[in-house]
């Protein structure tokens, strides 16, 4: 049975490869395929990579924008964590007493989490900018909702993967569902929850930068302004600020992980 499946999988691979080759025939190969000035622009962009503009004015602007981006990401993540813990715990069904109420809770809260993350943060940002205007709240909510949905879903899955034996032992020693959560489920998943949240925080910084493209301040906004000016040197200075932010958060998360796993 297995060998038959493997055989089928190989057939599928060959089939997909053939489709790919066939699709290449549909292209009109010719000089108009590439933008004629494209190579020159690409050259300029990459040359600028080595000569970012680090004048005092740009550095000051970079620091300020980094701060805004980081602040949005942190506020958004904090709110996302609260949402994720609440909906994640409810969506895992570990607090439900009966089989039926467990199915009901899982369905309801996992559904809500699914809705929250189905819509991208950029789309949420457009919605919120349209309703709140260009206020920081728009950025914070736009981040918190989809990130809450993603984190909540992962938290719920982690809680469902906790081994049964210790939980049953706690139940047998008279612990209520909430006490089982405190003494069984949460300690078991704490380290992976923190580690995953840190990774998501890193993603939130990037998202927060991109989100400011819609007009909310921050690194993305500056990158966009400089791009419009075709000033690639400035673009790269802000890119480096973003890279430094992400690397710093990664370092912090590594430190935290080391401390937790002792």
């Amino acid at each position: 049975m297995l060998s038959f499946d493997l055989h089928k999988r190989k057939l599928l691979t060959v089939f997909l490869l053939l489709i790919f080759i066939w699709s290449l025939l549909g292209i009109h190969w010719g000089p108009e395929l590439f933008h004629t000035g494209g190579m020159a622009t690409a050259g300029q962009v990459f040359a600028a990579m080595l000569q970012p503009d680090f004048s005092a004015e740009i550095v000051a602007l970079g620091i300020e924008s980094s701060w805004i981006t980081l602040a949005y990401a942190t506020a958004g993540m904090s709110l996302a964590l609260i949402l994720a813990l609440l909906f994640g715990i409810l969506g895992s069904g570990v607090l439900a007493s009966g089989k039926r109420s467990r199915t009901f809770m899982k369905g309801t809260f996992r559904g809500i989490l699914g809705f929250m993350r189905a819509i991208h943060e950029l789309v949420w940002a457009l919605f919120f900018v349209a309703s709140f205007g260009l206020s920081p709240f728009a950025a914070v909510f736009a981040l918190a909702i989809p990130y809450g949905g993603i984190l909540g879903r992962i938290f719920a899955d982690m809680l469902n993967d906790v081994p049964d034996e210790p939980i049953e032992a706690l139940r047998a020693s008279g612990a209520s569902r909430l006490q089982c959560l405190l003494y069984g489920y949460l300690p078991a998943v704490k380290a992976s929850m923190i580690s995953y949240s840190m990774y998501r925080f890193e993603c939130a910084v990037r998202s927060s930068a991109i989100m400011s493209f819609v007009g909310l301040g921050g690194l993305g906004y500056q990158i966009q302004l400089s791009l419009n000016d075709l000033n690639y040197h400035e673009v790269w200075s802000f890119m480096y600020f973003l890279i430094v932010l992400v690397v710093l958060i990664d370092g912090w998360s590594t430190m935290l992980r080391k401390r937790i796993s002792i």
Binding site: P166, L170, S176, Q179, G184
Partner: peptide, 22 residues
């Protein structure tokens, strides 16, 4: 049967959970 991530004392005190509130 024990929660490995908890300190020993909390696993022991889990025997008290039937008497303790949340």
């Amino acid at each position: 049967d024990l929660v490995g991530q908890l300190a020993v004392i909390h696993n022991v005190l889990a025997g008290r959970l039937s008497e303790w509130g949340f």
